[in-house]
Computed example of a mutant assay.
Amino acid sequence: MGGRGEAEADPVRLGVSGGSRRNGTRRCDVCVARRGRWLCHRPQLRAMAAGGRGGAVVLNSGVGALVGGFGDGAQQAAKHGLTGLVKAATADCARQGIRVNAVAPGVVRTPGSEPYFEAGPEFAALVARSTPLGRPARAAEVAEAASWLLSDRASYVAGVTLPVDGGITAVRRFDRGASGA
């Protein structure tokens, strides 16, 4: 931010365990994570506004925030909810010079995704077939997009969930390949 304000990237990943049981009641872990994220960012945004210097926040979402067909219904709802949170926070904070955006990665090759790649060639082939760029993202590529959103070079970008997905959102489906057929 060049000393002008504050910048904060959200390192939290929304994980889905399919829900959990507590006192015999199924509860959606991903919904709890989304509410937790809002409860954490609300005081952060208030503090940034009180500081009077503006700033930028980037939340980590996923390609499921922009198109259907990624993960289960709970995960899909959480990702779409996060897009709504970005828009609501922008409406609330932009006049104080605070920009709120999100990155929406597709498949990223990380230690967390490595078991899918190690299970056999099928997953890597699916990613290559489904992603117009033909490969998964590297974590550094997602970080570069977030860094840009946090920088002054993106000073007029607010309320955006930016796909960092190798073109998956352009073809709209993960399981049909880059041609969409």
Results as ranks from 00 to 15, higher is better:
Val107His: 01
Ala102Ile: 03
Ile168Arg: 11
Val67Phe: 13
Val108Gln: 03
Ala170Thr: 11
Leu66Asn: 13
Val171Asn: 14
Ala65Leu: 14
Arg99Ser: 05
Trp148Ile: 09
Ala94Val: 14
Ala154Pro: 08
Ala125Tyr: 10
Val127Thr: 01
Thr90Tyr: 11
Val171Met: 12
Val86His: 14
Tyr116Gln: 10
Gly159Arg: 13
Ala158Trp: 12
Ala74Cys: 01
Gly97Thr: 01
Ala91Gly: 13
Ala65Val: 07
Arg173Val: 08
Asn60Val: 02
Ala158Val: 14
Ala77Ser: 07
Ala102Asn: 04
Gln75Asn: 04
Val160His: 14
Tyr156Gln: 11
Val157Ala: 09
Gln76Cys: 00
Trp148Asn: 01
Ala104Tyr: 01
Lys79Asn: 04
Pro105His: 04
Gly166Pro: 11
Arg109Cys: 02
Ala139Cys: 05
Ala78Trp: 06
Glu122Met: 15
Arg95Asn: 10
Ala145Lys: 07
Val108Gly: 06
Val103Asp: 01
Ala89Leu: 02
Gly64Trp: 00
Asn101Gln: 03
Leu126Lys: 11
Gly106Glu: 00
Cys93Val: 08
Cys93Phe: 09
Gly167Phe: 03
Val160Asp: 12
Ser151Pro: 09
Arg99Thr: 03
Ala104Gln: 06
Leu82Gln: 07
Phe117Arg: 12
Arg172Glu: 13
Arg129Asn: 11
Gln96Lys: 10
Val127Met: 04
Pro163Val: 05
Leu82Arg: 01
Phe123Tyr: 15
Lys79Cys: 00
Glu114Tyr: 13
Ile98Asp: 03
Asp72His: 03
Leu149Thr: 00
Ala137Gly: 05
Arg172Ser: 09
Gln96Thr: 09
Lys79Gln: 06
Ala170Asn: 11
Asp165Asn: 09
Thr161His: 12
Phe174Trp: 07
Phe123Cys: 06
Gln76Tyr: 00
Thr83Leu: 15
Val127Asp: 07
Ala125His: 15
Ala140Gly: 10
Arg138Cys: 07
Ala158Ile: 12
Val103Tyr: 02
Gly120Tyr: 14
Arg135Pro: 08
Ala128Gly: 12
Pro111Leu: 04
Ala158Thr: 13
Ala94Met: 10
Ser130Met: 10
Val100Leu: 02
Leu85Phe: 15
Gln76Pro: 03
Val160Gly: 11
Ser151Cys: 09
Gly112Leu: 10
Phe123Ile: 12
